[in-house]
């Protein structure tokens, strides 16, 4: 309905302001119409994410979205995992970075199928990018897909990629108040990995404090402490991972 004179562009309702001459075959120059949109701004992304999710479900693929600040050790954790679990689980990787194929090259060196997405100026991956990356990958049934997001604790929190698990990684060289400073990421994650615990003797990082802060943001968050270089805690991570790998249903 027109806010200026009250007419309806479709002609179902006409109202006129006092003094506004009324005639029935009028054709306004300024027809206005209010459209009640009520549409989520991320609607398009969420639709594509659900589409990805359906594809993963149908093929029994466990998709995981790895998020963290730059430098927390996401790629190193992947390299280690891909090497250690080789032969036990089928795995593939999507790498997200603004520029370069450096991370994809590191993953490729482990003998794993990998696709690099360069977001250019973009600060996060979205469901649309993952959709296209997946199209060319020919993922195997009953496999695990790691999606390493752009290193950024803010923006990727908003974008559902269609993953089953969201894993947030924090290293002990960061502040133990990070879950409170960047609550959205911790709020939307299912697992938190505290990485580089071999460095604990050298840094003022309080593990108990970060645990408490993370659980304050998300009481359901599972937390695993590990070190990719020292090897501590890696079995906990592998056990968690294996517990999440969906076994195909036997008929």
């Amino acid at each position: 309905m027109c806010a200026t004179c009250g007419c309806d562009a479709n002609g179902t309702l006409t109202m006129h302001e006092p003094g506004h001459h009324h005639h029935h075959e009028h054709d306004h120059q300024h027809r206005q119409k209010i459209v009640e949109v009520e549409k989520d701004v991320l609607h398009e992304n969420n639709l594509l994410a659900e589409r990805n999710r359906g594809y993963f479900d149908a093929k029994n693929i466990l998709a995981m979205n790895l998020v963290s600040s730059p430098g927390s050790g996401k790629t190193t954790l992947l390299e280690k995992t891909l090497t250690d679990l080789k032969g036990t689980i089928e795995m593939a990787v999507i790498e997200g970075d603004q520029q370069t194929t450096n991370d994809a090259d590191r993953i490729h060196a482990t003998g794993t199928k990998v696709v690099q997405i360069n977001t250019g100026k973009g600060c996060h991956l979205d469901a649309h990018m993952v959709l296209h990356a997946v199209q060319g990958m020919k993922l195997k049934n009953d496999s695990v897909l790691f999606i390493e997001n752009v290193g950024n604790l803010v923006c990727p929190a908003m974008f559902d990629l269609g993953e089953k698990e969201r894993v947030v990684i924090i290293s002990v060289t960061e502040g133990d108040d990070k879950p409170l400073k960047y609550p959205d990421m911790f709020h939307s994650s299912t697992l938190c990995i505290i990485n580089k615990i071999d460095l604990l003797p050298y840094v003022p990082f309080d593990v108990e404090k970060v645990r408490a802060n993370a659980l304050q943001v998300n009481p359901q968050l599972k937390i695993i402490e590990l070190s990719c270089t020292g090897g501590q805690g890696l079995t906990d991570w592998y056990q968690w991972l294996q517990s999440k790998v969906l076994q195909p249903e036997t008929v």
């Binding site: 027809r31 206005q32 119409k33 459209v35 949109v37 009520e38 549409k39 659980l215 304050q216």
Partner: peptide, 20 residues
């Protein structure tokens, strides 16, 4: 308790448009 369910405040939507 920290087991809380957020019911309002996460919205991000286009509510309406006035078109002509």
């Amino acid at each position: 308790s920290h087991f809380i369910h957020i019911t309002q405040g996460k919205e991000l939507r286009v509510k309406s448009l006035l078109l002509s």
